[in-house]
Nucleic acid binder design. Structure first.
Length: 285
DNA sequence: CTTCTTGTTACTGA
DNA sequence: ATCAGTAACAAGAA
């Protein structure tokens, strides 16, 4: 499940690999994942290049040089962007699904650059997409995102303001991309644990001190997870096909039935807003 | 076999 | 406006 740290890792990797390279060929194997329609998609990108890659929340934004257009890429749950150099036969990865040999049966869109290197858009469950948009469409899309946790806009004041008046559970608020951008199910649970706050607590029940704690925790965990190149629970891989290193730092996610690392209570699991929710009944108030 | 998994959007009903 | 709940999407894990 690529969330902000995973998507940011891929963004940084690809910025070093594909920028300024001419796109020689695109193989759209599953037309559904190219939202503009295959022909339009091919025409918008073939023989163009990317000048840089940005990110907003979990959305990657490839800037297409000299066209005023952008390639949006969302990986949703099982999307991968794997880059391979021209003569390399393997990506050095391992695990599930096997990405050592590419393309595999989940490689739905394949970019070939002028140096014969390739970028594979793999997606086991096919929820992800790629879409070419113009500047107007881009600004409409970007308007729906809340504060970016790793920018200077993310201040305690802005965070409190975004939460103000909300009556929903704090975890649901953290998952809401219009409040804070980029947090998904794993980090929402981890943030609530690290802040010592029950996921089910209503936002309007939180004290100023608790909001402050949540704010600093979001910032700290997002930063740490980016440093560790994200969490590979099963499917996530970086642009080289390697796993992330944050799994060992997880305190609650998918640890139900195991002992809390802080207090040795048994981690519980429940459902909140239709999502699996993990927490320590003793550490979180 | 059934149930669960998740990011996002769309919809219903309160 | 705001929110809760749910279906849809797909394919594999448990």
């Amino acid at each position: 499940m690529p969330e902000l740290p995973e998507v940011e890792t891929i963004r940084r990797d690809l910025n070093k690999k594909v920028v300024q390279k001419r796109i020689k060929k695109i193989d759209v194997r599953k037309a559904k994942l190219a939202r503009n329609g295959k022909d339009n998609f091919l025409e918008s990108l073939t023989n163009k290049s990317f000048s840089k890659i940005d990110r907003r929340g979990k959305l990657l934004i490839f800037v297409i040089s000299g066209t005023g257009r952008f390639l949006l890429t969302h990986l949703k749950m099982t999307g991968q962007l794997i880059y391979q150099k021209g003569n390399k036969k393997t990506a050095g990865g391992h695990g599930w699904p096997e990405i050592g040999k590419l393309p595999n049966s989940y490689s739905h869109i394949i970019f070939t650059f002028s140096d014969n290197s390739r970028l594979f858009f793999n997606d086991l469950r096919q929820f992800g997409y790629m879409e070419v948009v113009d500047e107007k469409q881009l600004s409409e899309v970007l308007a729906r995102f809340g504060i970016e946790p790793l920018t200077k806009d993310f201040t305690e004041k802005n965070f409190a303001k975004a939460l103000q008046g909300r009556k929903t559970a704090i975890k649901t608020a953290l998952l809401n991309q219009q409040i804070v951008a980029g947090i998904g199910n794993i980090y929402a649970d981890e943030v609530c644990f690290a802040a010592g706050i029950k996921c089910q607590r209503k936002v309007d029940s939180l004290t100023k001190t608790e909001i402050k704690k949540l704010f600093s925790t979001v910032k700290r965990i997002m930063k740490l997870a980016v440093e560790k190149r994200g969490t590979t629970f099963n499917n996530y891989r970086d642009a080289d096909g390697n796993t992330g290193n944050f799994v060992g730092y997880l305190n609650v996610y998918h640890r139900d039935g195991k002992k809390c690392k802080k207090c040795s209570s048994i981690i519980k699991k429940t459902k909140l807003g239709g999502r699996g929710t993990h927490y320590c009944p003793s550490c979180q108030k």
